[in-house]
């Protein structure tokens, strides 16, 4: 094949947990407004960022994700009042676990994106993909060429 990928062109696999009410809608806004962002992300819709159990994120890393992002509404905007506060609390636990496991902190990110912030969603994804590209392939990722 002529267009075979070179090894240095590392394309990270990224999982994004996006809340139904803000961030997922934000991604939709990005799409509707035709704002481009890298196709490395796999978007998973959850009803609230507070629903994201640390287990989901750890499982994503276990299965070889190079980066994981949890994304929800801004504080005060949560559809369920306090879901994003809970997400923040759980995220602190995750940060510590990821640190002990020896994974780089750049692989994990928490962002608040509202439904109107399509541009910001794209921007956040671009930054995150850049960051993960810099730290390289996850040591847990299965080696596939």
């Amino acid at each position: 094949m002529g267009n075979k990928k070179k090894e240095e062109e590392f394309e990270p696999k990224i999982v994004v947990f996006a809340c139904n009410w803000c961030s997922y809608a934000g991604a939709d806004t990005a799409g509707v407004s035709k704002i481009q962002y890298p196709p490395n992300v796999r978007l998973i819709r959850v009803m609230c960022s507070g629903r994201v159990n640390p287990a989901f994120v750890i499982k994503a890393f276990e299965r070889g994700a190079d980066g994981v992002m949890v994304s929800g509404c801004h504080f005060g905007d949560c559809h369920y009042m306090f879901g994003n506060y809970q997400a923040k609390e759980r995220f602190e636990i995750l940060k510590r676990l990821i640190h002990i496991l020896g994974l780089e902190k750049e692989r994990l990110r928490l962002e608040w994106v509202s439904a109107a912030e399509g541009g910001r969603f794209a921007q956040v994804i671009r930054e995150f993909v850049e960051d993960v590209k810099k730290v390289g392939r996850s040591p847990l990722a299965p080696i596939t060429i």
Partner: peptide, 22 residues
């Protein structure tokens, strides 16, 4: 699995030989 299987996942992650823990 209790805790959504997080602890089992951590253990399975630890089977990876290239892991450098802190």
């Amino acid at each position: 699995c209790a805790h959504g299987g997080a602890i089992q996942s951590l253990m399975r992650i630890m089977t990876s030989p290239s892991l450098e823990q802190r």
